[in-house]
Structures are given as C-alpha cells and as structure tokens.
Write a protein that binds this DNA or RNA. Structure first.
Length: 592
RNA sequence: GGCGGCGUACCCAAGUGGUUCAAGGGGACGGAUUGCAAAUCCGUUAUUCGUCGGUUCGAAUCCGACCGCCGCCUCCA
C-alpha cells in the first residue's frame, strides 16, 4: 500500500515516492519564538507529528521510511510587518520585557518544547536556529546577487521577483496581478513592490546584527528556511510542511530563492495544514483570542479568559485530549475549538484510554510468566524501532507499560525515549511483525488483521487520522467483547486461577495469546502511531507503593460493603475520588 | 478586487462515482447491570449529504448557477 498525499504544488492527491527511498527528507516550518505557543501551533505540529510517525511506522503495517525530520526555530528576522519595514518580533518582545533578544529566544524556545513534549510530539531530528546559520544565509544571498536574482541597496539586499518567472506557482498568484493589487507599503529601496528582503541593514541601536559583505545587518525571514533546508536535506528534498497561512508569501519566497540560486527543484511535495478557529472566529494574536497551550493545559481558575475577561474556554484540558481533538479532524481542514468540542473529545479520549488500559491489564494478567518475550507490546529492545523515534514509550523491563497506558512516573523516561537516537543509524529498513499474526484464534486474528488494514488504508490516504481513530474505537469495542468472553470462560483472566492452573489450560493459552495480540495492536496504533499518551492520573498500571495503598483501601471498602456498611464504603470512594482516584465496581472486583 | 477552502444527523466529524459509502466520537432517549455511583453492555437517533439544475445506467462524491460561512493576499502554525 502506497502513501498518497495532497501536494499543494500540484493541487492533487498523488502517490508519495521519495527521492532516495527508504530515506525521506522532511522540513517543517517551526515557530518564531517570541511568545508562548498557542492552539494553532498545537494543530500544526500535532498534525505533522502524526505524519512523521506514520511515515516511520515499520513495514508491513506502515511504509517504514527513514525520515529525517528538520524543523527550524526562527529567532531573528521575522518582522512585525511583511513590507520589510516593521520591527523584528524578537527584538520587539525583548524591549517590552527589558531582556536581551537571546534571552527571549531561550525562554520561548524552551516553552515551545515543553508544550510539544506535553502533546507527545516526537522531537525533530534537527532543530536549526536561524541565528546559528548566518554564514549560510549570507552565502546564499551572495549567490543570488551573483546570478542576477538579487540586488543590494544601501546595505540591504532584495530578491528580484521579476527575475524568477515561476514566482507564484505554489500559491496560484500571478506576478502581474500582484503588482496591480499590491497592498504592501511602499519601500523606496525596492525596485518592485513585490520584491522581498534577503538581508536587512541594521539601523543604529539594533541589537541583533552581524557583519556581512553589505555592512552590518540581519537576515530576512524567508532566507533561513532555504539556507537551512539545503544544508541538512540537500538542494532538492521530499516534503516541506507548514501552515496554510505561510503558503504565501513565505513558502513562495523560499521556492524563489532556492530554485533561482541552484536551478534545481526545491521541494517535491508541499503539505499545508489548515488553520484553527475559536467558536467560529479566527484566532489571532491581534484579535486577542489566541489561547496559549499552557493556559489550556494548566490554566488559572479552571479556565481561559481573554484580556477583557470573556471566557474563551470554561475549563482546562489535558494535552492528550487536545491531541485527540486535533486528530479527529483532517489536517487540511479548519478546526474549530470550543469548550464543548473539547469536552466531547475528552469523553472519547478517556473512553479509548480506559478500554486500552483494561485490555492491557487483562493481557498482562493473562500472560504466563514464560511468555514474556512473546509479547509484541514489550518488544522495545528492537533496535530498528528505537532508532526511528517512533516508540512512544520507554524500554521498561517490567513490561507493564505500553504506549497507551503509561504511568506519569515515567514521564522523564518517556521524553528520553522519544528520540533515543537520530534517524538513519542503520541501513536496514524497519520491519516489525503484524500484531494480528501473533493471535492464535482465527476469529481474533482476522478481526485484528481487518483493523490493521483499515487503519493503514486511512493513514495512507493523505494521513486520515480521523478514520484511523475510528478503527481504534472499533478495536476497543471488539476487545471489550473478547475480554468479557474470556472472563466468563473457565480459566479466564478474572477467575482467580493461579498461573500454574492457567498454563495447563489450553483454552487459556489461546486466549492469552489473543489478548496479547490485541493489546499489542492497540499499543502500537494508539501509542506509537497516533502518539496518544495518557498520564496515569487514575493509576492503572503498576505504580509501586501507591497502587498497593489504593488496593489496601479497596480491600477495606470491600469488607465494609460486605458488612452493608455503605456509609464507610462511600466515604472511602469519595475521599479517593477527591485525590483523583476513581473507583469502579465491576463484576470481577473493583478497579480504578 | 485577486486566490483558495468549506456547507454531511442535535453537536464534532470521515467519506470525493456504484456493491460492507452514509465511518467514528459526543450528546440524548429507552433497556440491562448496580446498595448507590461511575464505568460497561444492548437498542434507538441522516432513504439522506446547503439549494436548484445538469452529466451518468448510477452522485454526498463530477459540472454549472445560486445561497451561506470561512481563510489567505498585513502579523500568526
């Protein structure tokens, strides 16, 4: 099954075939770090993370590409006004705060990474910073001057749009039309209003400045992406992603610079993710309704308000819920955030979480000690998988935590495990057995195989994460059925039979293998591919003494209920609930 | 003015020519289970895809017109 994707350049869905398979070079426009990340960043980078994760998913389930994922950090040159007249955004923020621009950059770069980690986005392989690539940008600018595509005026250098006939091919704009309807402010240095800055002269007092052949100055915004992508991915690379709002002028300018300088195609597939709105309204910094991710995740007084005190979101939501919500729509579709929509996503996310946990627990309980190495969900030592950075969970010797059910205690470990090694350390193409192949009963095997196929088809069709999630819910539903069947069967997981008894029961062996296969698939699809990571606020997996203490209270409560002392039982439940531990009484006992 | 997108049930949302295509989630309602609660389970909730035409043996899916909403062309992922 080949990956098909919508290429903005050709405006159609086409089969993806990389230049040098299995390698894939991918560049995604990163943030300009002059403020905290907002919901728009979340949509963009969660979407591209899902794309990267899928491209890296080992065959035969996924395409198994070896993706080199580059995402820049813009820390200079992005002006508040695109007529090349405004102030540098970072510098403006620095003055407002009375800080050095580089301190502003450090602050918000870390903030950005924190938020992306919280969303469980895989870290890019390379995160080049514009200020660390000044020589490369100067060299590219120089090359453009030499080839007649750029000119210098008073220490600033502009790209001559008229020298590049293809200008406008990405955004569908015609150069002549733009000249006529240009809304850009008049810059007297430009020969043509549509020309854009490659290098800007630094005025007196401008802090961020570097020497150049044209005097002291700083790079224009667009040039960094051309310079850094070519450095790390080559003159022609496979995928360039970014927000739709950057299609013009930013990406158009990147194409012009790169192709004019080198005479070869710049990017083969352009991917643009759509914007998001809030209650149907455009979300923008200038509109004052842009919501920072930190407010969404941790917000104050249980909600998010704008400066005027209007409620934007009536409560906070976990990062995994935001991720779930984003992935239930298509990346090229606009997404409307609202409290109600997030609440609905939360219910769905938690339902999936609970089903995955129940399955994982049952598969674990059902597992004879001798079968440890056969569990696909714990196949974390496979070097080809670790290397890809597609594994969402740390290597865990106890094997008790899979991609979808980790405990919060593993958070630090998780982050480390996200990117154990850069991509491409080996020449072998990643390959992993299909979880369905590990099921022993025909019914379960074919059911899992069908899920695998539908999931893969969805992701292969322009990364249809919404359809992929739907198959996860189906898997959760089927798993629930198998679980209930198993619990009712002799020797089932909930029957209290000892491990020795179960080992001797052939029925049990079959069931255990099936549950492990189902669990392995759930872990892989929900955890590794879609990146769902549910912090274990409710416990669930083994969490050492804390779990033992909760178990103790549950036992005491069971005793109380047995004696019809419901007041005490309810008190225990309520007080645990206040601590974030929800008890659930099931036919097989109490879980939480 | 130029460029582009969208309009699918109460809400979110997938689906871009035909047989399992009207997914999935949320919500609501009815029922099962339950000391209560939560969760879970079963069932119900679009003969129809903004409107009107057209193409076709066949359209939510293609074409045209119209209505409505939105984005980009200033800053934003």
């Amino acid at each position: 099954m080949a990956v098909r994707l919508y290429n903005s350049l050709t405006r159609q869905r086409e089969e993806f075939s990389p230049l040098n398979p299995p390698r894939v070079g991918m560049y995604v426009c990163g943030p300009t770090v002059y403020g905290h990340s907002h919901l728009g960043h979340a949509k963009s980078y969660v979407s591209f993370d899902a794309i990267v994760r899928w491209l890296r998913t080992p065959a035969p389930l996924g395409p198994g590409f070896d993706v080199n994922y580059v995402q820049n950090i813009t820390d200079v040159g992005h002006l508040t006004d695109d007529a090349d007249e405004g102030e540098d955004k970072v510098v403006a923020e620095a003055r407002r705060r009375g800080l050095h621009p580089m301190a502003v950059v450090e602050t918000f770069m870390r903030s950005y990474l924190d938020d992306m980690d919280a969303l469980n986005n895989t870290r890019p392989d390379i995160m080049p910073r514009a200020t660390a690539h000044i020589p490369e940008q100067i060299a590219l600018t120089q090359r453009l001057i030499e080839s007649g595509h750029a000119y210098e005026v008073n220490g600033s250098v502009y790209f001559s749009v008229g020298s590049f006939p293809d200008y406008g091919k990405l955004s569908g704009r015609k150069f002549e039309e733009m000249e006529a309807g240009a809304r850009v402010a008049v810059n007297t240095e430009k020969r043509n209003p549509a020309d854009f800055a490659l290098w800007k002269r630094a005025e007196e007092g401008h802090i961020m400045r570097w020497p150049s052949p044209w005097g002291e100055g700083f790079p224009g915004w667009h040039i960094e992406c051309s310079a850094m992508s070519q450095k790390y991915l080559g003159l022609t690379f496979d995928i360039h992603g970014g927000g739709l709002e950057n299609q013009f002028p930013h990406h158009e300018c990147e194409i012009a610079q790169s192709e004019a300088a080198h005479g070869v195609p710049f990017v083969r597939y352009w991917l643009h993710n759509n914007m998001c709105t809030l209650e149907g309204q455009k979300m923008g910094k200038s509109l004052g309704n842009s919501i920072s991710l930190k407010d969404v995740f941790y917000g104050r007084e249980g909600g998010v308000r704008d400066k005027a005190g209007n409620v934007l979101l009536d409560r906070t939501f976990e990062p995994v819920v935001v991720r779930h919500f984003i992935l239930t729509s298509h990346y090229r579709q606009t997404l409307d955030f609202s409290s109600d929509a997030l609440r609905a996503a939360e219910s769905g996310s938690y339902k999936l979480r609970d089903a995955a946990r129940e399955l994982h627990r049952a598969a674990h309980v059902a597992q004879p000690p001798s079968a440890v190495s056969a569990d696909p969900s714990r196949d974390r030592s496979d070097p080809s998988r670790d290397r890809k950075g597609a594994v969402s969970q740390p290597t865990d010797p106890s094997g008790d935590r899979g991609g979808a059910t980790s405990t919060s205690a593993d958070r630090a470990q998780l982050r480390q495990a996200m990117n154990p090694l850069p991509h491409g350390r080996g020449s072998d193409r990643p390959h992993a057995p299909l979880p369905s192949s590990l099921a022993t009963s025909d019914a379960v095997r074919s059911a899992l195989a069908e899920i695998e196929q539908r999931f893969a088809e969805a992701m292969n069709e322009d990364f249809n994460t919404a359809a992929a999630i739907a198959t996860l819910f189906d898997l959760a539903k089927r798993s629930g059925e198998w679980l209930r069947d198993g619990l009712a069967a002799p020797g089932g997981a909930g029957s209290g039979a000892s491990a020795g008894d179960r080992d001797a029961d052939p029925k049990f062996a079959t069931r255990a293998a099936d549950l492990r296969a189902a669990d392995g698939l759930m872990q892989h699809l929900a955890g590794d591919v879609l990146g769902f990571y549910w912090p274990a606020a409710l416990g669930g997996a083994d969490n050492g003494k804390q779990d033992d203490l909760i178990r103790l209270l549950i036992d005491l409560r069971a005793e109380a209920r047995k004696n019809k002392d419901f007041a005490l039982g309810d008190q225990i439940r309520q007080r645990l609930s206040a601590l974030g531990v929800e008890l659930r009484d099931g036919p097989q006992g109490t879980t939480w």
